[in-house]
Structures are given as structure tokens and as C-alpha cells.
Design a protein around this nucleic acid. Structure first.
Length: 637
RNA sequence: GCCGGUGUAGCUCAAUGGUAGAGCAGCUGAUUUGUAAUCAGCAGGUUGGGGGUUCAAGUCCCUUCGCCGGCUCCA
């Protein structure tokens, strides 16, 4: 009989052959590397028989799918080790995930990070034993009997549809309910490392039991595992919380959990970022407004926030009247809109607001600048005619992509989120809004993923995810279409027909949260921000005290050009000052000594490079000034 | 919020239940330095807060606060 290989060629194999036989027939090296196979779209065990005409691909650990198989198998070995070391342990689930795997357990005694070395040792012993993975298909009754002492497995089995094929895998002493596939034996898993222990609810529901989750990862070779651990360590080195402190940008205090404090250098960066932001928004036809932090409760009741968002809001009482601290800027922006009459001729009206919002996040989710309780949204509300909606969305998409490219975020992936359970407005309104967003995406030629039920409570949204240098993705920009709040807050405009109409409103952010975006940038650049964003752009390094006066003159010249400059007058060696400048991620350092004083010049050293170059002072100011120029469209000046 | 971990000087970390220490940073002084750490000295602490056990607590117990990791990528 014949099977079809991925390159389209046919391969003859004996009747009753398995995927492993196919691998063998292709070549001994492939057979050795093979860990699973793909028949059609199905990933299967190597022991799976193939049929006449099947599309067969052999999986090795070098593919994503192959890695998933070895990691999922590693999870089973972890469960084997855990149940051996801690008798009485109940097992839950253990899938492969991005970059690794986990397994959830209910242990009879507390198990923590300290137990990982023992578990790792046991895993290594099991890997060395090359225990075969044996698959068996069983009836539901048999499955229930096999797992009678495993409450979580029983729950899973009971939830399976009646016609489901139930398979179990055994390796060593460990039997697990599992769809598979797995590697042929534990000797084929490669190198396994356990990473961390954490709590996790059974099925992610906080009403359920808290289980102990052990995270790990597996790679075909020790080298790859070590590379991975090194990359993790690199990401740890780039942690914005650490860099933020070391670079003196911001801090967190016990007195304000989740509320960041920005220090002078942090504000320099924020202000540079906002300068860029304002340039882009001015050019894109936005006006800027600012609305109050605290507004009356009744407003939030009208807008629907009270009903849908009050668990995340902070409240206060002023002169016996209930007020709320704003968690979003839209109602305030809409009051600005309502403060005067509008004509269709005003549209589209683009009102931006760098609005600081407060949201009561659960204490356990706070995380540096990434998840805070107080942040600045680069918000805007666009009021327009129904017929202008698509063009406005396209304009927003264009602005988002242009601004992201400035930071090297060239890859963007897009999601369209639809009506959530908790929401307001009629079904028709939602349908119209969802269709409009989809249409704009089609016109922009952007591919997107549908994310049902993840929209805001007042309307569907398009989310933009960026990818940083370490391959992590972040949702930042969002563009939401809202027919509902204009209705609830009774917004109007006078149309061409001299009648009153309801405007359509778009909510959108580009950077999302200024604080979070800064955190992303810090990690993306490893603290070495582009010169235009750097808190200190230039350090002037006098060689000896007698050069201090000239160094100050150099500083003044640079500052006159609008640059952020420090001069290092400490009685330290040049080497020490250079080192501190490098550690401080300063883009440019200017060394001035006898030579420079005499020639009215400077010697420039650029961050990360040992090479130096001499400039006349005026040339240096022009050059560095150019390098530090805030990007963006020319403001016309 | 929940589970686990953790909390010692500004930072990174030491200290069998028995006198709280080091490096860096800071300050003072000396040094005047040419591209990633000059030398010396000084100062720095209610060991997160509160309570308890003990002759004795940084260390053990309780409680509270902060921080760190995690809380469906579904056998």
C-alpha cells in the first residue's frame, strides 16, 4: 500500500504498517529522531497504523508540534514522579503550553519549590529507564472504574460526550486519562527542567479547589534547555521593575500598592513619549481635552458603568453626595461634547484625552507598571456620522500602525471582540457595530482573529497586539464602536435636514496605558531607550577638575539645543564615569580634557560602542541634537 | 480575592534559638585621573508592623501588611 509524504511523493509500505514503519522506510536517521506522526491533520503516536492513501508526516522535536508532544509526555512523567514521591496525590490535568508544560495536583502535604530538585531527580531516573508509553482505548464504564480514586479524572470522564473515544496511556506505574499522542518511550523526551510551583484553581474557577501547579519545560537536548533558561534569565534582567529602580525612573511604595510614583527621570521619559504622541495626534486631526478625576455617581449610573463596572471603581462622598473616581474617560468626554450644540458640519470630531483613570484591580494581579490601579490612557473619542465610521476606523488603524512602527513593533496582530454576557444595548445595535468593525478591517486589508464575547460592555472592539524583541505579545491599542452610550447620555447633533440626530461614537487608545507602554518599552529595549526617549541623553565627562568649567559650557550648549544633559563632576576616574554612563544607559558621552578645552571640541562615545570620535563643539551639538529629535510627522515648524 | 513563596542597611545578600554582618551605593578625606569600578575612613538597622512561646527570637507560632510566582493555552 502507498502513503503520501509531505513533499507529495508516494511511499510504499507493507500492509498493516505503522507511522513508525513509515519513518523507518524514509530513513534510519528520521526513524531515530521520530517521536510522533501526523496523519492528515491528526497528531498521532508512532505506533498508529496508517491506511492506504494517508498523508503521513513524521514529527521530530524540531517542530512546534513535536515539541508539544515531548512536553506533554514530560508532564506525564512529572505526574508519575509526583505520585511516587507523594503517595495519595490526586492528579488533575497536565497539558503542554507555550514554552513548556504544567501539571496540576492535589497533594496530601504542601509541596513547594524546595521539592523541585527531588522531583527533577525522580524524573531523570524515569527518563533514563526508557519506559514505554502504552495506549489503550476503554469504554466509559471501564474508565470510571480505572480512575475510581481520582476525583478530577472522574469529573472529566463524566463530562465527555457519550460517543467519545476514551484513551488511557500508561508509562511505568502511572496511568493517565489522555487523548495523546505521546513519544514511544520516556527515553525520547530529552531534557526536562522544572521551573516553578504555583496555585491554580481546578478548571480556573475560584469556587473550586485550589490545586498545586508545577510548571516545567522540555527540550530535545540539554543545550536547548540551557539556552531557554538563559533567555528566561535575560528577560529577568530586563524586568522593568528592576530597571525602573536602577535607572531612577519610578518606584512603588507600600503606602500605595499598585499606584506608581514617577521620579524626575521617569517623567522626562513620559514627557518625551507624550511629546511624540501629541505630534502624531495633532497631525491626525485631534483636539485635546481634560476632564475631572471625580464625578457624580448619577453620571456613572446613566453611562452604565455603575451597573457593569462598579466592582472596579473607587467611591467617595462630597457634601453628602456620592461621587466616583473615574475608571474610564468616556462619560467626562461626553459631557464636554454635550456642553455645546453640534452640527453635522463639525464631524468627525476627534477629542483626545490623556486621562488618568483608577481601577480597583484585585491585589493578586498587580504587576509593576504592567498591571496597576492608576494609569493614564491615551484616550480619544471620535464623534461622527454613521457614514463616516469606516473612514474614521481606518484613520485610527493607520495612526496605530504608524506609531507602533516608531518603536519597531512592526508585527501587529488584530482581534475582533464581540458582545460579552454583561452588556447593554439592543441586539441590532451590536450587530451593526460588529459588522462596521469587520468591514473596516477588511478594507484595511488586516487579517484578524475573532474573539467572541470579549467586547466592552457598551460595544464591540478591535484590539491590536504588538510583539516585543523577546517574542512576547501585548495588547495595547483598542478601537471600540459605541452606539449605546450616546443614546444613554442623550448626545445629539443637528443634521443636514435640520433635525436632531444621535452621533456615533468611537472610543480608542493607541498606546493603551502610558505606564504600561513605558514598562513594555523598558523591557523591549532592555533599558537602553532610543536617544529621543532617554531620561539623560548626554553625560559630559571632564577628565580632571581643571576641565569642569569647559564641561559646564558644553552642557549649556547642549541644553540650549533642548537636550537632557548631565555633567559628571565627581572626583572619579574617567573609566568609572564611563562605566556609570553605560550602566545608566546614557546614549551619548562626551569626554573633555586638555585637548578638547584647547580645541573647543568634544570626544564622543556612543552607548554600547568602544569607538570614539572627535567633534567640534558646534558639530557635536548639531549631531546629537539630530539623533535625539522626537520622531513623527513634521509639525509644520 | 485565593494558593504557594518571600520580607535583614538605599540595593544585592550573610548570620545552629545565644553580641545583627559583607559588597555596592551614600558621606568625609586623599587622589586629578583619557573611555566599563582609585584608595582610606565614617555612617547606616525597633530584622515589614503587631502579638505570643522561651532564660534568650532575625530564626519557632499566630496575626496583619507589602512584594514575588500563579489562578483553563481545557484529558
Amino acid at each position: 500500500m502507498k502513503v503520501v509524504l509531505p513533499d507529495g511523493s508516494d511511499l510504499s509500505v507493507a500492509e498493516g504498517a505503522t507511522a513508525a514503519d513509515v519513518a523507518e522506510a524514509i530513513g534510519p536517521r528520521l526513524a531515530k529522531a521520530a517521536i510522533a506522526a501526523k496523519i492528515g491533520d491528526r497528531v498521532v503516536d508512532l505506533a498508529t497504523p496508517v491506511d492506504e492513501g494517508d498523508q503521513v508526516a513524521i514529527l521530530t522535536p524540531s517542530s512546534e508540534e513535536g515539541l508539544d508532544v515531548i512536553r506533554h509526555s514530560a508532564a506525564h512523567v512529572l505526574a508519575d514522579a509526583a505520585t511516587r514521591l507523594f503517595p495519595g496525590t490526586k492528579v488533575a490535568i497536565g497539558p503542554a503550553i507555550k514554552d513548556g508544560f504544567y501539571y496540576d495536583f492535589e497533594f496530601p502535604e504542601p509541596v513547594g519549590e524546595d521539592d523541585l530538585p527531588r522531583l527533577t531527580e525522580e524524573i531523570q531516573r524515569l527518563l533514563g529507564a526508557s519506559l514505554p508509553f502504552e495506549r489503550r482505548e476503554v469504554s466509559k464504564e471501564e474508565a470510571l472504574a480505572l480512575f475510581k480514586d481520582e476525583p478530577y479524572k472522574l469529573e472529566l470522564i463524566r463530562d465527555l460526550p457519550t460517543d467519545a473515544v476514551i484513551s488511557v496511556y500508561r508509562q511505568g506505574e502511572f496511568l493517565d486519562l489522555c487523548r495523546g499522542p505521546h513519544v514511544p518511550d520516556t527515553g525520547r523526551i530529552g531534557e526536562v527542567g522544572l521551573l516553578s510551583v504555583a496555585g491554580a484553581y481546578w478548571r480556573g474557577d475560584s469556587d473550586n479547589t485550589m490545586l498545586t501547579r508545577i510548571y516545567g519545560t522540555a527540550f530535545p537536548t540539554k543545550k536547548e534547555l540551557e539556552d531557554y533558561l538563559r533567555r528566561m534569565e535575560m528577560a529577568r534582567q530586563r524586568d522593568h521593575r528592576r530597571l525602573g529602580r536602577e535607572l531612577g525612573l519610578f518606584s512603588f511604595q507600600d503606602e500605595g500598592p499598585g499606584f506608581p510614583f514617577f521620579h524626575p527621570k521617569g517623567m522626562r521619559v513620559v514627557n518625551a513619549l507624550l511629546e511624540y504622541w501629541r505630534k502624531e495626534h495633532l497631525a491626525a486631526g485631534y483636539e485635546e481635552i481634560r476632564t475631572p478625576m471625580i464625578l457624580e455617581r448619577t453620571l456613572w449610573e446613566h453611562s452604565g458603568h455603575w451597573e457593569n463596572y462598579k466592582d472596579n471603581m473607587y467611591f467617595t462622598v462630597i457634601d453628602g453626595v456620592d461621587f466616583a473616581v473615574k475608571p474610564m474617560n468616556c462619560p467626562g468626554g461626553m459631557l464636554v461634547y454635550k456642553s455645546e450644540q453640534h452640527s453635522y458640519r463639525d464631524f468627525p470630531l476627534r477629542m483626545a484625552e490623556l486621562g488618568q483613570v483608577h481601577r480597583h484591580e484585585m491585589s493578586g494581579v498587580l504587576h509593576g507598571l504592567f498591571r496597576v490601579r492608576c494609569f493614564t490612557q491615551d484616550d480619544a473619542h471620535i464623534f461622527c456620522l454613521p457614514g463616516q465610521v469606516e473612514d474614521e476606523i481606518l484613520g485610527v488603524i493607520d495612526l496605530i500602525r504608524r506609531m507602533y512602527r516608531t518603536f519597531g513593533f512592526d508585527k501587529v496582530h488584530v482581534e475582533l471582540s464581540t458582545r460579552p454576557e454583561k452588556s447593554i444595548g439592543s441586539a441590532e445595535m451590536w450587530e451593526t457595530a460588529e459588522r462596521a468593525l469587520a468591514a473596516a478591517l477588511e478594507r484595511a486589508g488586516l487579517e484578524y482573529v475573532l474573539n467572541p464575547g470579549d467586547g466592552a460592555f457598551y460595544g464591540p472592539k478591535i484590539d491590536f497586539h504588538i510583539e516585543d524583541v523577546m517574542g512576547r505579545t501585548w495588547q495595547c491599542a483598542t478601537c471600540q464602536l459605541d452606539f449605546i452610550m450616546p443614546e444613554r447620555l442623550d448626545l445629539e447633533y443637528v443634521g443636514e435636514d435640520n433635525q436632531r440626530h444621535r452621533p456615533v461614537m468611537l472610543h480608542r487608545v493607541v498606546l493603551g496605558s502610558i505606564e504600561r507602554f513605558l514598562g513594555i518599552l523598558i523591557e523591549h529595549y532592555g533599558g537602553a531607550l532610543p536617544a529621543w526617549l532617554a531620561a539623560v541623553q548626554v553625560v559630559v565627562v571632564p577628565v580632571a577638575d581643571r576641565h569642569a568649567e569647559y564641561a559646564q559650557a558644553v552642557k549649556s550648549a547642549l541644553e540650549s539645543a533642548g537636550l537632557r544633559v548631565d555633567v559628571d563632576l565627581r572626583a572619579e576616574s574617567v573609566s568609572k564615569k564611563i562605566r556609570d554612563g553605560e550602566v545608566g544607559k546614557v546614549p551619548f558621552m562626551l569626554v573633555v580634557g586638555d585637548r578638547e578645552v584647547e580645541q573647543r571640541s568634544v570626544t564622543l562615545r556612543t552607548r554600547g560602542s568602544k569607538e570614539t570620535r572627535s567633534y567640534a563643539l558646534a558639530e557635536a551639538v548639531a549631531f546629537i541634537g539630530g539623533e535625539c529629535e522626537v520622531p513623527g510627522v513634521a509639525s509644520g515648524a
